[in-house]
């Protein structure tokens, strides 16, 4: 390098701090002996600062809504986004949306696979969040089957032994309908129902006036282990329910809460006292 000049590209790289340290120091030494070039460097540096100063405030300005809306993909059904698009393309499926759909399907598959794998490791933690709660399941089952005059049950109470054997086998654990004759309710029968993850059982009772009562027995409980009585109301159906280990019991009827509580207590005593 000619000791009396600075290459133009080096001079600008020096201004912009784009030179490695040794070269930067070499240029600085040269500039010390070249006042004209040194002045130019200072001018360019000031010029750069002035440009930044002149437009710097733009960075801090709030982003106008029409630009903010453009940060989201234009096809999303986002009302602000579409409203802010003065020349939208209605009805046109952008070529990249197919990729997005494919990506979405892939995410769904991966999510499903992850969920399936997690299923063994974290039994039903996420399923419980999505599951229908016990009293609601019971109330729906009651509302569906108890009004049925001709086929309220699958297996009649007259074949109680068969009913017990069958339901116990299907549910995977011994279940036995409590006897509520002393309270005026006779067993009508029972049926198998789909629960949240598998079969659950329903026993139906009836009093002399035709008032029906159903006991819902689930073996799907994994979350909490509490056994306290709880009361729930789903429309006209009142439900007393409790949980005992993996079992969930729910007694449903369209009778008043006090009478149902009395029945529920009797059911509880028979089941837990066995």
């Amino acid at each position: 390098m000619n000791p009396n000049t600075v290459k133009e590209s080096d001079l600008h790289a020096y201004v912009d701090g784009a030179l490695p340290a040794p070269e930067r120091e070499a240029i600085a030494r040269l500039l010390a002996e070249l006042p004209g070039e040194a002045k130019r460097v200072r001018d360019y540096q000031e010029q750069k600062q002035a440009i930044n100063h002149l437009y710097g405030a733009t960075l801090d300005e709030p982003i106008p809504d029409r630009l903010r809306a453009m940060a989201t993909p234009p096809h999303l059904p986002d009302s602000t986004a579409s409203a802010a698009l003065p020349h939208g393309h209605p009805g046109r499926l952008p070529s990249w949306s197919l990729q997005r759909i494919a990506a979405g399907i892939l995410i769904a598959i991966l999510g499903g696979a992850a969920g399936w794998m997690a299923h063994g490791q974290y039994p039903s933690a996420e399923r419980i969040a999505a599951a229908v709660p016990l009293p609601r399941q019971a109330a729906i089952a009651h509302a569906v089957y108890s009004p049925d005059v001709r086929r309220p049950v699958e297996v009649s109470g007259e074949q109680e032994e068969q009913l017990v054997t069958w339901l116990s086998k299907r549910i995977g654990t011994p279940v036995k309908p409590p006897k509520l004759g002393k309270l005026g309710y006779e067993l009508v029968g029972g049926r198998l129902l789909p629960g949240n993850i598998g079969p659950v059982a329903q026993f139906m009772y009836q009093d002399g006036t035709g008032q029906r009562l159903t006991l819902f027995v689930s073996t799907e409980n994994t979350a909490n282990q509490e056994t306290a009585f709880r009361f729930a109301q789903e429309g006209p159906v009142n439900v007393f329910y409790w949980i005992d280990g993996k079992f969930g019991y729910a007694l449903s009827a369209t009778i008043d809460k006090g009478e149902l509580a009395r029945l529920a207590t009797a059911v509880y005593e028979q089941i837990e006292g066995k």
Partner: peptide, 18 residues
């Protein structure tokens, strides 16, 4: 994603403005 685009808008505006 939208957030990283949003982060670039002020700089795009400044440059376009200048």
């Amino acid at each position: 994603d939208s957030r990283s685009i949003l982060a670039e808008i002020p700089r795009l505006r400044r440059y376009a403005r200048a």
